[in-house]
């Protein structure tokens, strides 16, 4: 096992970087697409039902199948892998953005509107800051999913840590499979940890104070 890490150290670094970068681009695209759509959906409850059911159906397509479908559409390599992973990351982010925006206290929202906020101001000044913790937990969930699914991206030639695992399967070398899996797990944990930090940082200070009353 240790020999696996020592012998392939440069290869491991390269593959880990590849894996990380495929996942993060997919996640970033997912965030850029899902958060604005989630916000729009929270304003139109009827459309929201339809869109959210469609994305849940997309989520049930087996990941390997989705990757395979990408080949006739986009060929092989990193691009189809990123597109497929991005589609996977959509649902948790979309769902949480929608829930987060809807769970903002009606009285708080109402007060903002009654003070003379436009819809846009209400979103930026009130709803988004208050929904941030819920949206961020959706992003964290997606990050973990995407990193573990990115392993399969190796199957359509995107590289990443999946290469070790598939090689291990083909050559029947357990340490390649286990070693690859360990790094993927660590990467997922690390991403979750870092995003957790980010979540704390972007959560408005007033929301972290609970009941610590003075007077």
């Amino acid at each position: 096992m240790i020999t696996f890490f020592t012998e392939n150290s440069s290869d491991i670094l390269l593959k880990t970087w590849e894996h990380f970068y495929i996942s993060m681009i997919a996640l970033l695209l997912g965030v850029l697409i899902a958060v604005p759509i989630g916000i729009l959906l929270s304003k139109t409850k009827y459309v929201a039902k339809v869109v959210l059911s469609i994305t849940s159906v997309l989520q049930t397509v087996p990941s390997l199948a989705l990757l395979a479908i990408m080949i006739p559409l986009l060929g092989v390599g990193k691009v189809p892998a990123i597109v497929a992973l991005c589609i996977y990351s959509l649902l948790p982010i979309l769902n949480n953005t929608f829930i987060g925006m809807n769970s903002v206290n009606e009285n708080t929202k109402g007060a903002g509107i009654a003070m003379g906020m436009t819809t846009m101001q209400s979103i930026i000044l009130v709803e988004l800051p208050l929904a941030i913790p819920v949206i961020m937990s959706g992003i964290r969930l997606s990050a973990v999913y995407v990193i573990s699914w990115a392993t399969l991206a190796s199957y359509i030639g995107a590289g990443g840590l999946g290469d070790f695992i598939f090689n291990g399967l083909n050559l029947y070398q357990t340490e390649l499979i286990v070693g690859g899996a360990i790094i993927v797990t660590l990467l997922a944990l690390l991403a979750d940890f870092l995003l957790g930090k980010l979540e704390k940082w972007v959560t408005p200070k007033g929301l972290k104070i609970e009941g610590g009353r003075t007077s």
Binding site: N107, T108, G112, A114, K205, G206, L207
Partner: peptide, 16 residues
């Protein structure tokens, strides 16, 4: 609305 003050029972301050 910006020219009319409004106070509600549930207070509705912005927690953040």
């Amino acid at each position: 609305r910006r020219s009319i003050g409004y106070v509600i029972q549930q207070i509705g301050l912005m927690p953040h």
